[in-house]
Simulated scan of single mutants.
Amino acid sequence: MDYIKGFTFGWMSGRGDFRKPEAKESLRLMAERTGSSHVIFALAAHQDHPQAVEVKYRGAHLVEDDELVGMIRYARTLGLHVILKPTVNCTDGTWRAHINFFDIDVPCEPKWKDWFCSYTAFQKHYAGIAEQEKCEMFIVGCEMVQSERRDQEWREVIAGVREVYTGLVSYNTDKYQEDHVKWWDAVDVISSSGYYPIGDWEAQLDRIEQAITPYGKPFFFAEAGCPSRSGSAQVPNDWGLEGEVSAEEQERFYEAMFRDYGKPAEKVIRRFYEGIAVEV
Rank of each mutant, 00 (worst) to 15 (best):
Q204L: 07
G225Q: 08
T213L: 07
G93N: 11
C135F: 10
N89V: 07
P218Q: 08
Q132E: 07
Q210T: 05
C135P: 02
V69Q: 04
F221I: 08
D206C: 09
W95R: 12
V140C: 05
R207A: 05
A277C: 09
L168V: 06
T213R: 15
E153W: 09
I40D: 04
V69S: 09
L78Y: 05
K134W: 06
K134E: 11
G16W: 03
T8P: 14
F7D: 02
E202G: 11
A127P: 01
P50H: 02
Y273D: 13
V55Y: 02
G79M: 00
R15Q: 11
G231P: 11
Y119E: 07
V235T: 01
A97T: 09
R207V: 05
C108T: 06
Y254S: 10
G59R: 02
I4N: 08
T8L: 09
I212G: 02
I104G: 11
I40H: 00
V164H: 00
Q146I: 05
W184E: 09
A31Q: 09
F7L: 14
V88W: 03
D48A: 14
H61L: 13
D114M: 03
P197D: 00
M144G: 01
S191F: 00
K182L: 12
G216H: 03
P264H: 13
F138A: 13
E251S: 01
A277R: 07
D48C: 04
S191C: 07
A127C: 08
V82E: 01
A247L: 13
G35Y: 02
F138H: 09
W11G: 01
F253N: 05
V88N: 05
M144F: 08
G167V: 12
D174I: 07
Q47S: 01
K56P: 13
V169A: 00
G10P: 00
I129F: 12
A233L: 03
R271E: 09
G225W: 06
P86Y: 05
C108L: 06
A121E: 11
E143D: 14
I104Q: 14
E255L: 06
S193I: 02
S36T: 14
P214G: 08
E163M: 06
E249F: 10
D48T: 03
G194Q: 06
H46S: 12
M30Q: 08
F102D: 15
Q250R: 06
G10W: 04
G240W: 03
L205P: 00
Y261W: 15
K175N: 14
D17P: 12
G14E: 04
P236N: 05
Q204E: 15
E136S: 12
I99C: 11
D188R: 08
H38V: 02
A45T: 09
L62F: 00
D185E: 11
A233E: 13
H46D: 14
E131C: 06
F9G: 01
H81V: 02
F9Q: 10
G262E: 09
D114L: 06
